[in-house]
């Protein structure tokens, strides 16, 4: 079964994303910030990461960089799901090694079809 790690400091957003993914049959691991996300990724075999950008402790872009430095996560799809729509920030995400960028408001169908695309 595909396991997805969802990282967001907003509890309600995390609940909505987790609910959508579980309904679609995925296993879901949740984390409230980049630091917790990194710990959970190290402790579980995660197939896809969906992370927010602006978070306390460790932001989403730093999380992408840290994950890409780990041998297990060199090629794992990492999607940034954020309110940030600016080109600069998006470029930062791309340079860090993210696979894709989704701008909120969060759309369940859009998220699921993007995940299906990146896991082939």
């Amino acid at each position: 079964m595909t396991t997805i790690l969802t990282v967001d400091d907003s509890t309600s957003m995390r609940q909505m994303v987790a609910f959508t993914l579980k309904q679609a049959g995925f296993d879901v691991v949740e984390a409230a910030d980049g630091e917790e996300g990194l710990q959970k990724a190290k402790g579980t075999n995660v197939d896809v990461v969906v992370t927010d950008v602006n978070m306390p402790k460790m932001d989403g872009i730093s999380l992408v960089k840290k994950l890409r430095a780990l041998p297990n996560y060199k090629f794992t799809p990492i999607l940034l799901l954020t309110t940030e729509a600016g080109a600069d920030k998006k470029q930062e995400g791309k340079a860090a090694g993210a696979t894709g960028w989704l701008v909120k408001p969060f759309n369940p169908d859009q998220l699921l079809s993007t995940i299906k695309k990146v896991i082939g």
Partner: peptide, 28 residues
Amino acid sequence: GKINDAARYGNFAMEHMINAILKNGGKR
């Protein structure tokens, strides 16, 4: 009724502003 359009839009309206505060140095 959990993640309908209304809830998703409401979340967005709230999170957008909270993020602007946090991005500019506010603490949750």
